[in-house]
Design a protein around this nucleic acid. Structure first.
Lengths: 158, 158
DNA sequence: ACGGAATATTTCAACCTTGAAATTTCATAC
DNA sequence: GTATGAAATTTCAAGGTTGAAATATTCCGT
């Protein structure tokens, strides 16, 4: 569940639209996420976080550090540890201690992991096309552009 | 963590834009959520789900059933149980067994809950204005409209 | 009135998530 | 070379999340 699903109070002008935007942004992503979660579970007995980790590793054949994964996926270190643990025990991912720096370990997809990810990725793309099917290409492009510039401008604020 | 933070494979045309849109939608909401979570914790020692429940109850002075909350907030029943439990033990919410139907209970904000929520809501609105400050009003309106129509058209599919 | 379906809620296991503390290893100033 | 701090990772407690199973109550056809 996520903050903002409910419109509440509005006393500063101009912010009204932004609040509404936030609520709808959130509802949209929650609905899509929920649908993807369900389908990943049903068809692959997997989860979204696992899919994300595998996707990141797929693009990085040379492997990634735990902290790379954490930074790239915008989640905490401890979180990555747990997800990778489970992927390792399922045989989709391997952790290898490095000679250079024994604090770190290189995480890579196993052969089985690559196969499984590719199976998922194919279907995943169709799902997104399905779920976002109502957004025509021009709209998608505009929305996309607006959201792109909208980044962490506020990062580092108090 | 959420599926789609990573662009992966793209073999069907037209879907390329949608996949990118999904990734950015997700990144945007994740960043905002993360910032809100942090601030709610810091300033009110609370969480987003708690805020959402309180917001829903604030708009419903007559109270809501657990299942109303669940439906309205798009989360599972079991989930609501836990969040309400904690809000009750903090004195912000009360559960009252109904005479009419002993299966259900009416959940309402306590006086303390209303006060606390209003404190949070004021600041919350400013935060959203802050975090979405770069989106001007016209853009917000357009984006908002696009996202509105974008609903669960696919619900009920196999 | 009875039994079975439907409804509202809770419980539970498994997983995700964070932030903080603990561990291990490395780098550097002295 | 030693201490001190930085860096990478894991551990841990607390909470959020789901879906399925279990409970309790009501509804309804007969």
């Amino acid at each position: 569940m996520v903050s903002g699903l409910v419109a509440t109070i509005d006393h500063r002008s101009g912010n009204k639209e932004r609040l509404l935007l936030w609520i709808r942004l959130l509802r949209a992503s929650r609905m899509i996420e929920s649908e993807l979660r369900e389908r990943l579970k049903r068809d692959f007995n997997s989860t979204l976080p696992r899919f994300d980790v595998m996707a990141a590793l797929f693009r990085a054949p040379e492997g990634m550090l735990m902290s790379d994964l954490s930074r790239f996926l915008l989640v905490s270190n401890g979180n990555v540890t747990g997800i990778v643990d489970r992927l390792v025990s399922d045989g989709f991912v391997s952790r290898a201690r490095r000679d250079g720096d024994r604090r770190t370990s290189i995480v890579t997809l196993t052969e089985q992991g690559r196969d499984e990810f590719q199976r998922m990725a194919r279907v995943h793309e169709d799902w997104i096309g399905d779920l976002l099917g109502d957004v025509d290409e021009a709209d998608a492009k505009r929305l996309s552009t607006m959201l792109k510039s909208f980044r962490s401008n506020w990062e580092g604020e108090t």
